[in-house]
Simulated scan of single mutants.
Amino acid sequence: MATVVHISSPKITDSYEPCLEYCPKCETTYTTRIEQTRGNCWWITFVLGCVFFFPLCYWLCCASSKDTKHFCPSCGSLLAIRQGGC
């Protein structure tokens, strides 16, 4: 018996908030579960802010400075990414 494997890379989105995305594994549209993580841009801004311009670090508290990953709430697949900052 053959098993069908869905291999897809996450798409790029503009949403920092949960949104409707199609999950190819579940074959259904869900409102995504999000996680915000510190990406490369966050760390670069942090280092430059600490070394040269300390008030720049205030921006790092905003959600827009972090990467937002959208996951399927049912199976946990990564569906979309919103890269923050730069």
Rank of each mutant, 00 (worst) to 15 (best):
M1H: 15
A2M: 13
A2R: 15
T3M: 11
T3Y: 13
V4W: 15
V4S: 11
I7K: 15
S8M: 13
S9H: 12
S9E: 14
S9V: 13
P10M: 04
D14A: 09
D14L: 08
D14M: 05
Y16K: 09
E17M: 05
P18S: 02
C19G: 12
E21D: 11
E21I: 03
C23A: 07
C23W: 04
C26E: 07
C26D: 05
E27R: 01
T28I: 07
T29Y: 01
Y30H: 10
T31F: 02
I34T: 05
I34W: 00
E35W: 02
E35C: 03
E35A: 00
E35V: 12
Q36E: 09
T37D: 05
T37P: 10
R38C: 01
R38F: 10
G39R: 05
G39N: 05
W42V: 00
W42C: 06
W43T: 03
I44C: 12
I44N: 12
V47Y: 13
G49E: 01
C50G: 13
F52S: 00
P55K: 04
L56M: 12
C57Q: 13
W59S: 14
W59H: 15
S65M: 11
T68I: 07
T68E: 08
K69C: 09
C72I: 02
G76Y: 00
L78A: 03
L78D: 05
A80W: 03
I81V: 05
R82F: 08
Q83S: 07
G85S: 08
